[in-house]
Design a protein around this nucleic acid. Structure first.
Ligand SMILES: [Mn+2]
Ligand SMILES: [Mn+2]
Ligand SMILES: [Mn+2]
Ligand SMILES: [Mn+2]
Lengths: 219, 219
DNA sequence: TAATATAATTAGGCGCGCCTAAAATTTTTA
DNA sequence: TAAAAATTTTAGGCGCGCCTAATTATATTA
């Protein structure tokens, strides 16, 4: 069996190497988990002993197939719990991550399958992220950053990169949620910000920082 | 804040002193928690430092008002999660305790209030046990043991004392659940067992051990 | 390529929750 | 009421997950 701490490390390594497509180095893991490099080394050695990661001293770390399977299961649990909190208990999309961070560690396998069924085998979490199925397969998720759309184009918001509470609350404030239609009115070259029409009505202004973190499909 | 371990100890002390109305001694706590007496002493000292229990060396332990409030909150959380698992996810009444034992430690206060609302502010858990409200008040729960009913009397099952999976599965097997009507057909004095008619049809035989653990109200 | 800067690991230590064994205290029994 | 038994506490130790400081290895730069 694995501890809560082990599970959080496995998730972090998965996120770094598979989602952000960066190297999972000792320091990047430490930064991601707000811990110290020496703590990461300790844990990575432990995970290597358990054959969850491939680890060569000074050479960074990758997940083994066993570790990847464990990571995907954690992602599945996290996102199902987030959807439960959002859809059934009425939490806002910026209130769910922290609680799911705890709920994802509940051990029962049958629990997660029952939850999946209760939620009608959903494919997306409240942030637009794909929920892997029981076998670990991710539903196809084609989207691009709002920053990549050009003037005049209309698109639908299908996800976010930054899931921080402040960013999500900001999107709420300016009237953006999943499914919102955005039209690029103008692109301000000097700071790469955009003027945008929201749902064919309100006009807003979004910084480059913001538009890099909003995921779209074309309409 | 309190750890999972502290919470489990507080719950055990509450159960021993308030529900079973026994003394919460070092050894009774140790037995209840399947741990060693020396571990209990360690924890009880820690809980005393936090003003959650009154503790005098060699004299056993009682909850302070603060400790009792914390205990009741744990009971509330445990029973709400049990009901969720039973009612919403379709678990059987003998499958829920272990999972709730983990879920009860999820930290968010607003979560538990949302869950309460989602479940329609229930008063009883799937074992017939009372669920304290947000303020810590328990709904009145009058019932008596099946072993206290006399021949010819009819009653309704409203709870169980033993929540072990084996006992609950046994009750399922003989057709007893909450709300089942039982009629005392005969009392066998030599071993205090009962012959019982279930829901006006099937005749079964229950040992003294069993009938001490079934809670009834008269019909 | 040698010196320097950066990154990673190791050494050693800490609190937590648990254990065993020994000592202290209380309760029971003779 | 004194000895024996049972209970409880203390002493000391262990694994976990974390830390700081020191050391070692790798990457960068002159
Ligand atoms: Mn987590
Ligand atoms: Mn999410
Ligand atoms: Mn518990
Ligand atoms: Mn219960």
């Amino acid at each position: 069996m694995s501890t809560t701490s082990e599970e959080n490390y496995i998730k972090a390594i998965f996120k770094l190497s598979h989602e952000l497509k960066t190297e999972a180095t000792t320091s990047s893991i430490a930064e991601h988990m707000a811990t110290k490099a020496s703590s990461v080394t300790d844990m990575v050695q432990k995970l290597a002993d358990k054959h969850l990661v491939n680890y060569i001293k000074y050479q960074g770390v990758t997940l083994t197939p066993k570790g990847e399977k464990a990571a995907i299961k954690m992602v599945r649990k996290h996102r199902l719990w987030e959807l439960f909190l959002y859809q059934k208990l009425g939490f806002k999309w910026n209130e769910i991550h922290e609680i799911a961070e705890e709920l994802e560690h509940i051990k029962s396998d049958v629990l997660i399958e029952r939850l999946d069924k209760f939620l009608n085998y959903p494919q997306k979490d409240p942030h637009g992220d794909p929920i892997p199925d029981r076998k670990g397969h991710f539903p196809e998720n084609k989207s691009f950053k709002l920053s990549q759309l050009s003037k005049g184009v209309k698109g639908i918001v299908v996800g976010v990169n930054d899931k921080s509470s402040v960013f999500l609350a900001y999107l709420d404030k300016v009237g953006i949620q999943l499914g919102t239609e955005l039209e690029i009115i103008d692109c301000n070259e000097f700071d790469n910000s955009l003027d945008i029409k929201v749902n064919d009505s309100k006009l807003i202004h979004l910084s480059y920082q913001a538009i890099q973190n909003i995921l779209m499909i074309e309409k």
